[in-house]
């Protein structure tokens, strides 16, 4: 297939250039947008504190914290991986960021993988049993569940299982200052993870189910499924190798986009369960007008969106060969 190879090389180059330009635009936005927030660090920091500043001190502080580094310097600092110091926490931004990232990855990654896998399998199986009582009640139930926002599921779970029953901790990602074995620590992390994870899975899984089920229903009607049946293939092979394989594309798109918006997605749930991830970090930084932190989180999340979309572009070509040859 020499023809497709010669076609796709310049197309791929074009794709990378496009994404490079988009990334540059993102960097500029991450620099300029947080500056447009009303208020500043000095107001946020000292308005509620007991320290009373003189007008002179205040002017001095404000001059220090609102100093414009200029976009050029911002770029240089970015390139040298120097993200600066947080105003509020007085620690390097990178330390804050990489301290919060693993928790977000753990929570969101697990939630996405579980909800995608479960949603996919149940969607495939439900579509295969189309018009059965099970399928109908599942579709109905999932539609209702899809309509419930994560903020209310989160609060309900918190109230019932943490506050009322007391089965799970209400806040944090692990028990502080506990010196225990690795196994016990893992159990502890899992224990803390359960409620926010359940909230997110409940929020994401119905959508994945409905999407898979709908695209499966369309795929099952296709002639090639009849062909597969006529070939006398085992039912599971028809269901997964032939039907589900073709129903995968919309789900992959959804998975990718959800991953890309991981940080914003986590913000609500992390706040409800006081989970120390990027969402909580961003929330606190915005409250304190902690510009360097806001910039870092905004930039990181927007670059993540870009990277994942670029990755999706590549994955699509593997999942559906027709995309490679579409003009």
């Amino acid at each position: 297939m020499t023809d497709s190879a010669t076609h796709s090389a310049p197309r791929r180059l074009g794709l990378i250039i496009t994404f490079g330009l988009a990334a540059l635009a993102m960097i500029y936005l991450s620099y300029s947008l947080p500056r447009l927030l009303p208020g500043d660090f000095v107001t946020a920091m000292y308005s509620s504190s007991h320290v009373t500043l003189t007008a002179e001190q205040e002017a001095e502080l404000r001059a220090y914290y609102t100093e414009e580094p200029g976009f050029g310097r911002y770029l240089v600092k970015l390139a040298s991986l120097d993200w600066g110091y947080s105003y509020a926490f007085l620690t390097p931004v990178s330390a804050l960021f990489f301290g919060a990232l693993p928790w977000t990855l753990l929570l969101l990654g697990t939630a996405h993988v579980i909800s995608m896998f479960v949603g996919f399998v149940t969607g495939v199986e439900a579509a295969w049993r189309r018009d059965s009582h099970l399928e109908r009640s599942m579709v109905g139930g999932m539609t209702v569940l899809e309509g419930v926002p994560e903020i209310s599921t989160g609060v309900i779970l918190l109230v019932v299982f943490a506050l009322h029953l007391g089965w799970f901790p209400a806040a944090g990602a692990e028990t502080a200052y506990a010196e225990v074995s690795l196994l016990a620590r893992l159990a502890d992390v899992g224990h803390h993870l359960a409620l926010p994870l359940a909230t997110l899975v409940l929020a994401y899984f119905p959508g994945n189910f409905l999407l898979t089920r709908n695209s499966m229903v369309m795929v099952i009607k296709q002639s090639y499924i009849t062909t597969a049946r006529a070939k006398g293939l085992p039912a599971r092979r028809i269901r997964y190798a032939h039907a589900a394989r073709n129903a995968l594309l919309p789900l992959v798109t959804r998975f990718g986009l959800r991953l890309a918006f991981m940080i914003t997605g986590a913000l609500v749930v992390e706040r409800i369960h006081s989970y120390p991830g990027l969402g909580t970090l961003l929330y606190n930084a915005i409250q304190a007008r902690d510009l360097p932190v806001i910039q870092a989180v905004v930039l990181a999340s927007s670059l993540m969106v870009l990277t994942i979309i670029l990755g999706l572009e590549m994955i699509y070509r593997i999942i559906d060969p027709r995309i490679e040859h579409a003009h």
């Binding site: 296709q222 002639s223 090639y224 009849t226 062909t227 006529a230 394989r245 073709n246 559906d320 060969p321």
Partner: peptide
Amino acid sequence: LAMVFQNGAANFNPV
């Protein structure tokens, strides 16, 4: 028993 279905390409799995 084998069959050649009508409508050509639609009978092949596109992927």
